[in-house]
């Protein structure tokens, strides 16, 4: 699946997007975030506080219990500050 990072999450991970293959035990957003945190110190820092992160699955806002699967586009970002 494709994972996108925006704003300070991108700065911490050092990448805007990556293609990952999480283990089959990863079924939802919460599980994915937990697993992504193990990928390196930058990821761990970016994803340290899940309550500070908003998520979109296939460009739709999603909650921690939203299902994720191979082929999905998952975006992780801070609360939005447009307008």
């Amino acid at each position: 699946m494709k994972v996108l990072y925006f704003a300070w999450l991108r700065q911490h991970t050092g990448i805007g997007e990556e293609t990952v293959t999480p283990p089959p035990s990863v079924r939802d957003v919460a599980g994915l975030v937990e697993w992504l945190r193990t990928l390196g110190p930058g990821h761990a820092e970016a994803l340290r506080d899940p309550s500070a992160i908003r998520v979109a699955v296939n460009q739709e806002f999603a909650t921690a219990d939203a299902h994720v699967s191979q082929g999905d586009e998952i975006a992780l970002f801070p609360p939005m500050t447009g307008g």
Partner: peptide
């Protein structure tokens, strides 16, 4: 609605050149 639903993020530069992400 745009402010809370459109995925935009602001990175501010202060007069001193320091950059920081705007908090919601």
């Amino acid at each position: 609605w745009l402010k809370t639903k459109a995925p935009f993020w602001k990175l501010e530069e202060t007069g001193g050149g320091e950059k920081r992400w705007v908090d919601a």
